[in-house]
Write a protein that binds this DNA or RNA. Structure first.
Length: 576
DNA sequence: GCGATCAGCT
DNA sequence: CACAGCTGATCGC
């Protein structure tokens, strides 16, 4: 826990500056209290411990002739549960010097913006960000990225948070003889340098790529094929980011007929927005792993002659280039593709994936070895932070067992995709030691996933268990009402579990990661932040580990402004 | 009558 | 919003 004992910066240029900053901060504190009283709302809760006196923990100063900008942590609050809050101030002091007024009094104008970030000890994720005072709330409402622009310095609130996190983890892992003293002292100049300066050294999106993207914008204003509006009868061209440059390969590109120059059609996993367009008439050669090929055969009727099953974790030569399939930690049968050219150059296509240390520390993946990464950028935005799958699963299991303790005649309905989200209902069934009801098609699909315990628990008889797996679209009040009505003799209550990454985690302080989406007398719908795509931080960790030369995003690429934003992140990640 | 594609919805 | 569908309408054979 952060105490502030040795946290006053010792790296500052001189004592005078520290003193002056301290003085200014005290003034700011008064301002803030004024504002609090003015609003008459934000009185401190009596339950919170008395806040420590303001303390200057560190600061960074940028000076010019007329201005001085500094960023400092000015206060930390913590409670006995390990929740912690820090307030940072970004301020400029500008002197309005009237002409050549060497004699005239310089008028000092102090402006401040502040950001408060908080985290709970029990969860490593960001649970809340609050900004004050009101002047920057306006900015935030128009700017979901929570960027503060101040005196030429652009600071992202989330960056402040992540700097804190990184430093926190470093200090906890390296603290040996020091007790709690290495308490998150964020006083290294390099950290502030990172925040303030944007390195342009790294170019994960180079000029050539930029040209490709703008050509695509011209060609296909809406290049997200889900919402493409190609004229009837006109086949859309396959966008460049679905092809692997320098090869005759494409990935998840079945909506474009026979693509010029393509010899091998790879499929990363069996979700409809990736296999879309694939049908019995397919007459090229599809490459994927055992599970995905099985599903293509049983669900789509793809003929075996048009499929090549590739092993996992092993390079196989396909049309002159080595290809290895690596587990993508997305849904069962999902994989990433690692391509190795004759000259040793490596290209990684992540497919859809959830980055995790076990995944990117794969022996075939080493830092700086990979030239280009085609990246699943689904949640490549700072607003997407969610807990690990294990944390969410634990929370769901807890909720279900609590609900059953309260009322044994409760039916549990869990929403899923065609494949995906298995771990969450499997864990619930294991905890209750019961069977899992699924419908016929789902029964067939789940039995192909090569998971013995899961298969053993499946049943097509709804009366055999109170754990029912349904489609995600069925987790609504009317559908759940209809569902429980079917089994009214046995159950009088139903809870719906909706596991999706779009549900922002709402921590209630403990380890409960769910939110109540709707509730009526006998029906409750819970949202769980259970994601099968990487969170923002996981993407960042992944990229910073791999350190690729270029990055080609494959999701959210339909709008140039979103691409620019992602490119900004990539540069930031790779500039350290 | 069937499969495939598409708009609309969540 | 985007994900990963699902439903129902329309088109082609």
């Amino acid at each position: 826990m952060a105490t502030c004992e040795n946290s006053c910066s010792t790296e500052d240029e001189n004592d005078h500056q520290i003193l002056s900053s301290k003085r200014i901060i005290t003034i700011l504190s008064d301002d803030e209290d004024l504002e609090i009283n003015k609003n008459n709302k934000r009185q401190r809760s009596p339950s919170l411990p008395k806040p420590k006196p303001l303390q200057l923990m560190n600061k960074q100063t940028i000076k010019s002739n007329t201005r001085q900008t500094s960023l400092s942590i000015i206060r930390t609050n913590s409670d006995s549960n390990g929740n912690e809050e820090r307030k940072w101030n970004l301020q400029t002091i500008s002197s309005s010097s009237n002409e050549n007024s060497s004699k005239q009094k310089k008028k000092k104008i102090t402006q401040t913006k502040s950001v408060t970030v908080a985290q709970s000890r029990t969860s490593s994720t960001l649970i809340r960000t609050v900004s004050s005072p009101s002047i920057i709330k306006n900015d935030i409402s128009n700017d979901p990225s929570r960027t503060l622009s101040f005196d030429g310095a652009v600071i992202n609130e989330e960056d402040v948070f992540s700097q804190w996190n990184e430093k926190a983890s470093i200090s906890s892992s390296t603290s040996t003889n020091t007790t709690q003293s290495s308490s998150i002292t964020v006083n290294s100049k390099s950290i502030w340098k990172e925040i303030f300066s944007k390195s342009t050294k790294s170019k994960p999106v180079d000029d050539e790529l930029k040209q490709e993207w703008s050509a695509l914008d011209k060609d296909q204003p809406s290049n997200n094929y889900r919402s493409n509006a190609a004229p009837v009868g006109v086949k859309r061209a396959c966008p460049f980011y679905k092809k692997i440059s320098g090869t005759a390969f494409c990935i998840d590109a079945f909506n474009f007929g026979n693509i010029d120059g393509i010899q091998a059609y790879f499929l990363s996993h069996f979700h409809s927005d990736h296999y879309g367009g694939l049908n019995k008439k397919f007459s090229n050669m599809l490459y994927s792993n055992q599970i995905t090929c099985n599903l293509c055969k049983s669900e789509l009727g793809i003929r075996s002659e048009t499929m090549t099953i590739l092993p996992m974790n092993e390079f196989i030569n396909v049309h002159g280039i080595d290809v290895a399939l690596l587990d993508a930690n997305h849904c069962p049968g999902s994989n990433m593709f690692l391509f190795r050219f004759a000259n040793g150059r490596l290209i990684l296509h992540t497919g859809d994936f959830r980055a995790a240390p076990t995944l990117f520390k794969h022996p075939l993946i080493q830092p700086k070895q990979i030239d280009t990464v085609y990246l699943d950028t689904t949640y490549c935005d700072t607003r997407y932070r969610f807990p690990s799958q294990d944390e969410v699963i634990e929370s769901a299991v807890g909720l279900v067992s609590d609900s059953l303790k309260e009322n044994a005649r409760t039916l549990i309905a869990i929403g899923t995709y065609l494949i995906g989200k298995e771990r969450i209902f499997h864990a619930i069934a294991k905890a209750l030691d019961c069977k899992i009801f699924v419908e016929t098609r789902k029964f067939r699909i789940l039995n192909q996933l090569e998971n013995d315990d899961l298969s053993k628990r499946l049943t097509k008889n709804p009366h055999e268990t109170n754990v029912h797996v349904v489609g995600m679209g069925s987790i609504t009040q009317p559908m759940l009402q209809a569902h429980v009505d079917k089994y009214a003799l046995r159950y009088n209550k139903i809870i719906g579990i909706k596991p999706t990454g779009w549900t922002t985690p709402r921590s209630t302080g403990g380890s409960k990661h769910y939110s109540i989406e709707s509730k009526s007398s006998n029906i409750t719908v819970y949202g769980f932040p259970y994601s099968e795509h990487s969170s923002f931080d996981e993407l960042k960790d992944f990229i910073q580990y791999i350190k690729p030369k270029r990055i080609i995003p494959t999701v959210n690429v339909g709008r140039a402004d979103l691409r620019d934003k992602m490119n900004g992140y990539f540069q930031q990640w790779l500039s350290t």
